[in-house]
């Protein structure tokens, strides 16, 4: 089982990202589970969402306490001292940021890739919603799920022009990071 935790702020599509990642995993033949950290949702407030994927049925229902990977949609959340709580040794963190990866990595005891997903989203879809670009970059890094499965999951959620723009966005995002850099998963 691989476990992911997505951190973001209300309005950035963290729950949607979790559902998309799970749906993509399903398209690729895995079983999956995705859910938000349930709270009173407010735009701008810190939010978390969780994803598990596995080859067998998933019965565990708790929050993801020991993620293999973190996806951080908002770099201001790097200031939260609990952000990396429970992250497995050998794990990694993808951060939506214009900063250099090494600059962020210096402050954390894990592998970090920084990727300017909001900038790319503004450029390609005209909206500052980083989730689909981040997911594409994340899947390019981990190769847990093929990009085609993410595209299939997007087709279940978006239609028309918004779908076309998002497909263009994920293609560009996937090509902008080192493919397979995080291919090996963290220690279970």
């Amino acid at each position: 089982m691989i476990e992911y935790r997505i951190h973001g702020r209300g309005g950035q599509g963290s729950v949607a990202a979790a559902y998309l990642l799970a749906a993509a995993a399903f398209e690729a033949g895995f079983t999956c589970q995705a859910f938000p950290a349930f709270g009173a949702e407010r735009r701008g407030a810190p939010v978390m969402a969780f994803v598990r994927i596995d080859e067998k049925p998933i019965t565990l229902r708790s929050q993801v306490r020991n993620p293999d990977f973190l996806i951080v949609q908002d770099e201001t959340l790097l200031l939260d001292p609990t952000l990396t709580n429970g992250l497995k040794p050998g794990g990694a963190m993808l951060v939506n940021s214009r900063k250099a990866s090494a600059e962020i990595a210096a402050k954390f005891d894990t592998r970090v890739v920084a990727f300017p997903a909001t900038d790319l989203a503004v450029k390609v879809i005209g909206k500052p919603i980083p989730n689909t670009a981040l997911l594409a970059a994340f899947l390019a890094l981990t190769e847990h799920v093929p990009q085609a499965a993410l595209a299939a999951a997007l087709k279940g959620r978006f239609h028309g022009a918004m779908l076309e723009k998002n497909l263009a966005l994920i293609a560009e995002a996937a090509g902008a990071v080192e493919a397979g850099a995080w291919k090996e998963t963290a220690d279970a």
Partner: peptide, 10 residues
């Protein structure tokens, strides 16, 4: 509630 109602799964 939430644990099932808001969870996506297969």
């Amino acid at each position: 509630g939430f644990v099932l109602t808001h969870t996506m799964e297969v």
